[in-house]
């Protein structure tokens, strides 16, 4: 009986971690779908948002709702800055130029965060003070449920916007064929900027949920978010919102099981190995041209 309980508990843990990955992947996917460019600075912008909230908390002891708003706002500002600097000028140029520029901004954002708060580790107020919920032999953290709920909410809202609004039509038109979108009178630059802002807001909210459930902030959050988000996006097949959610949850499950059965040192190894195999084998759902 014990192995089955372990396996199921791993699944719960995996889905809990995967919910955060799924949210990160949704942000990456929105940006990648509209711009067809990888934004390496996505994670660092999220980190900067979390740092702004932490700074405010240390200065004023503000409550969670205020910290949430500050994290979202600061991430949107940082994300917009990245878009104007790295992506708007290279919208029609080389994708590599935009990606390298976003890497440079990554460094800049990390420096900014460490100037703001120089220590390596800061405490962040807890999202939920109580202990985990228990169901018989299983337990789940309330924080994880909240993140899972947020992932579902973002997906449903995203779906509604993309399929039932004028803005959604414009976004999908840009994803389908940017040239044809321009010729239909859609301001592609404005749509890109707005999608960047939306993706950054989702990122800021995700970053807040992550640091508030870990109850700590480190500068590693930037790199961590970029790696996990991109990995989940690629596992999900690049450029599809449901794929991003599936990829995030899959990544969480893979990590949880590998850690349990092979040890923590194999956790990332197995995730990357799987990505390598997927990229080499290219199953049909990979690399489809982004039909949301």
């Amino acid at each position: 009986m014990a192995p089955v309980v372990d396996f199921l508990q791993n699944c719960l843990d995996g889905l809990s971690a995967g919910a955060a990955y799924a949210l990160l992947a949704v942000g990456f996917t929105l940006i990648f779908g509209v711009l067809r460019r990888a934004n390496l600075s996505y994670g660092p912008a999220i980190m900067l948002g979390a740092y702004a909230a932490t700074w405010l908390f240390l200065q004023t002891g503000a409550g969670l709702l205020v910290l949430f708003a500050v994290a979202v706002l600061a991430t949107v500002l940082a994300g917009t800055y990245v878009e104007r600097l790295c992506f708007a000028p290279h919208r029609k140029g080389a994708a590599a130029a935009a990606m390298v520029a976003s890497f440079a901004i990554w460094m800049q954002l990390e420096e900014l965060a460490t100037l703001l708060l120089p220590r390596h580790l800061y405490a962040f107020p807890a999202l939920y003070e109580g202990g985990p919920l228990t169901f018989g032999p299983f337990f789940v953290r309330v924080e994880s449920l909240l993140i899972l709920l947020a992932a579902v909410a973002v997906c449903v809202a995203g779906w509604k916007v993309l399929y039932a609004t004028r803005f959604g039509i414009a976004v999908r038109a840009v994803i389908d064929d940017p040239r044809a979108a321009e010729l239909s009178g859609i301001d592609v630059g404005a749509v890109s900027l707005r999608i960047f802002a939306v993706a950054s807001a989702i990122g800021g909210a995700t970053g807040f949920l992550i640091v508030a459930s870990h109850e700590q902030v480190t500068p590693m959050l930037g790199m961590w978010s970029t790696l996990k988000g991109m990995l989940a996006m690629m596992l999900g097949g690049l450029g599809s919102l449901p794929g991003a959610i599936a990829g995030g949850l899959a990544l969480g499950l893979i990590e949880a099981h590998s850690q349990w059965y092979f040890g923590p040192q194999f956790r990332d190894f197995i995730a990357y190995l799987l990505l390598f195999v997927l990229l080499a084998a290219r199953p049909p759902w990979m690399n489809t041209r982004s039909a949301y």
Binding site: I169, A170, R172, A173, A181, L183, S184, G185, I186, S290
Partner: peptide, 19 residues
């Protein structure tokens, strides 16, 4: 032609009326 391939015919027309 450059239609929007993964959008429906109706949505293509809506995109044309974007402004």
């Amino acid at each position: 032609r450059l239609v929007f391939p993964s959008m429906t015919v109706l949505e293509n027309l809506q995109a044309g009326a974007y402004q």
